[in-house]
Amino acid sequence: MLVIGVGSLVRTDDAAGRVVVERVDDLALPGVEVASLHQLTPEVAARLAGRRLVVVVDAAVDVAEVTVTPLATDASGRLVTHHLGAAGLLRLAADLGWAPDAAALVRVPASDLGIGTELSAAAAARVDTAVAEVRALIA
């Protein structure tokens, strides 16, 4: 299993996904690999191959609470050039035969995306929930 946290470390709440995966990493769960990435690039698709489960944790401005959504692991996501979201990454992996058995997206609500290296209080308060959701997914 692979848990990917994605976002900028200097854009306040955009780092929420990465804070979550660092916490997951600290738990040292057996069979769980963690990746903390600035952005999703096509190369990341190669890391999805053969996984039972891939969880992407990302900050989102369009959710009010921590939200878990399954990601399609077939070629139904949309690909846009120069930007790769979680769905696009899965689509790419599917095209290349690297799709995992299952995948999910955990979105952590972000309110402040300005310059900053600390999460806002609102986002920080949701880290525990997001970690719990990741644990529930990989359990």
Binding site: A46, T81, L92, D95, L96, G97
Partner: peptide, 25 residues
């Protein structure tokens, strides 16, 4: 006629390209 078209038409080749670049990195 771009890398994504290539991925769909020739996934094996695209895989090699991605892996080689990843390895270099």
């Amino acid at each position: 006629r771009n890398v994504f078209g290539l991925m769909q038409a020739e996934p094996e080749i695209a895989r090699r390209g991605i892996r080689l670049r990843q390895f270099g990195q």
